[in-house]
């Protein structure tokens, strides 16, 4: 998957740059199937980057997994979804050495969630790199009920917890790893604008 061009946004929204190798420093790499290409590009740019790397692929397509297996010496961990990746990444972080680098690649939602998890585990922000690949879907937090709705591709959308119709803000919290969703018809209950696809 090619790199995505983002529209200009506000200062709280993370920006994503291509992953850069920190050489053979200990590393935790996590990607979804779109992001796996970014990890493969990274490994192609510097093969030493996998020397001390733990690699987690979330729901990878079989061809991606096969290509990754060829690039690395250690077994690649796979998980069926983000929910199961969380505990695994947490466990890898708990035994991580000083100076560990984290490379994340794929959807904004996945990277947001794992960034929040990693910083909560004490990994400094500047040890985390993120490269966006694939879907423009967002991970949204409802400001009213605080529930998270994953993979939001439309604006407005329905909160999967409280059912309010929310508009999609660009305001982003790294701690929560999500964008903010706010009731779209708060002032005029029932008047809901037409649904649009989210642009990156």
């Amino acid at each position: 998957m090619p790199t995505v061009e983002f529209s200009p946004s506000i200062d709280s929204r993370p920006t994503y740059a291509p992953l850069k190798s920190h050489g053979s420093a200990p590393a935790i790499m996590v990607a979804d199937t779109a992001g796996a290409d970014a990890l493969l590009d990274l490994m192609a740019s510097d093969s030493a980057v996998t020397d001390k790397a733990q690699i987690v692929l979330i729901a990878p397509a079989s061809d991606k997994l096969a290509r990754m297996d060829l690039m690395v010496k250690t077994p690649v961990h796979t998980t069926p979804d983000l929910d199961t990746a969380g505990p695994l990444v947490r466990q890898l972080l708990s035994t991580a050495r000083m100076g560990t680098q984290m490379y994340l690649a794929g959807s904004e939602g996945m990277m947001g969630a794992l960034c929040a998890l990693a910083t909560a585990c004490g990994l400094p922000m500047d040890a985390i790199q993120t490269e966006h690949r694939g879907t423009a879907a967002r991970r949204m937090q409802c400001v009213h009920c605080k529930g998270i709705t994953e993979d939001v591709t439309t604006d407005p959308f329905e909160c999967s917890h409280c059912g309010l119709t929310l508009f999609v803000r660009d305001h982003f919290s790294r701690r929560i790893g999500a964008f903010q969703g706010v009731c779209v018809d708060a002032e005029t209950p029932g008047l809901i604008p037409t649904t649009q696809e989210i642009r990156p």
């Binding site: 200062d11 709280s12 929204r13 937090q141 400001v143 605080k146 305001h171 919290s173 790294r174 701690r175």
Partner: peptide, 17 residues
């Protein structure tokens, strides 16, 4: 504005909107 959302942000992040 929401403290719960903004807590942990820096000066430019919480002023972003």
């Amino acid at each position: 504005w929401s403290l719960d959302f903004d807590v942990g942000m820096n000066f430019f992040e919480w002023h972003a909107p």
